[in-house]
């Protein structure tokens, strides 16, 4: 019963009593008990060098965010959860004087301290050019994943990996990244000979490889494509529909605040989750996957509410 007690505790701490346990079907607990491995995915996107919280007089986000608080929150979750994967969907750089003055050094050092497992590259991560990005890499002790930018003819060749596989309690998690079209968004002087390839074709190939050849139980796409557009421009929603074998897309770029993950049916009618948590480190995303050992069935839940006053 320990897993249930822990679960209840976690809900009541995190939810501040706002969540009633009635919201959790009994059956889901029954399945979770002893039979599944819980994988906790924590994520950020578009932190944009917001090291400090917004000031109390900010019109939109007074007193929200802050790296030191995020670190405390992550530490709290790590103290309870065994299998945590901490990911970022890009645009770590640019947005406060910390970037103008330090070029991303402090951002990468903080992410290393918080033990990020992987991040992808956003358009603003090119803001000091590919040289500026490369110069900061020694401060990051985690990998950058991207599968649709070809860096072969740039100084970033070999510095960015297409995917990474994590193993947590015998559960295999494949994480790959896709980035937004740079032309028209980033000046060529900054991205130089970086080539943008169609993210849908690449994501399909990569996810299929991770699922069928590497036998990953979970396939996560770190995307900086943006959540959704009025036009038919490629986005996370478009990507989710047009691919198979992705379980979760962690998005960024459009600074979209989703209250809950969006569920989309992929091209083989299987469910894909998309989540994105605004920007500036105002929120931390959390999705818990419960994966069965025989790997024939898994389900997932995103269980934690906003942290309220009584924590």
């Amino acid at each position: 019963m320990s897993s249930r007690r822990q679960f209840i505790k976690q809900i009541s701490i995190a939810g501040g009593g706002l969540v009633s346990l009635q919201a959790i079907p009994f059956s889901s607990y029954a399945l979770a008990k002893d039979e599944t491995t819980k994988i906790t995915i924590l994520h950020t996107n578009d932190v944009h060098s917001h090291i400090e919280p917004f000031p109390s007089n900010d019109p939109k986000y007074p007193n929200l965010g802050g790296a030191a608080r995020r670190a405390a929150l992550i530490q709290q979750i790590r103290a309870v959860e065994k299998n945590v994967l901490l990911l970022d969907a890009g645009d770590v750089f640019q947005g406060t004087p910390y970037f103008n003055k330090y070029g991303g050094e402090i951002d990468f050092k903080l992410m290393s301290l918080m033990q990020y497992d992987a991040a992808t590259i956003g358009n603003h991560d090119f803001d000091n050019g590919i040289e500026g990005f490369k110069n900061m890499l020694p401060h990051a002790n985690f990998p950058f994943v991207n599968a649709n930018y070809n860096f072969e003819n740039t100084i970033l060749k070999g510095e960015i990996i297409p995917h990474k596989i994590f193993i947590k309690d015998n559960i295999k998690i494949g994480v790959f990244g896709v980035g937004v079209e740079l032309d028209g968004l980033v000046s060529k002087e900054l991205y130089k000979e970086t080539i943008y390839n169609d993210p849908i074709a690449i994501a399909n190939r990569k996810a299929t490889f991770l699922k069928n050849e590497e036998h990953c139980d979970l396939v996560i796409c770190l995307s900086h494509l943006g959540y959704e557009y009025k036009s038919n421009k490629v986005s996370d929603v478009v990507l989710a529909k047009a691919t198979s074998n992705i379980d979760l897309i962690i998005g960024g770029h459009t600074h979209t605040f989703l209250n809950e993950p969006t569920e989309i049916k992929n091209n083989v009618k299987k469910r894909v989750l998309i989540n994105q948590v605004g920007w500036a480190g105002i929120n931390l995303g959390r999705i818990d996957f419960h994966v069965t050992p025989n790997k024939s069935a898994n389900y997932f839940q995103s269980s934690v509410q906003a942290v309220e006053d009584n924590i």
Partner: peptide
């Protein structure tokens, strides 16, 4: 797969106390 539960974001707000190591680094 089955998805249960709704809210998936945690506010990073003033109810959290700072992580001292992080503050020290900043």
């Amino acid at each position: 797969t089955k998805y249960v539960g709704k809210n998936s974001t945690i506010a990073v707000d003033s109810t959290l106390s700072d992580n001292q190591q992080t503050t020290y680094l900043i």
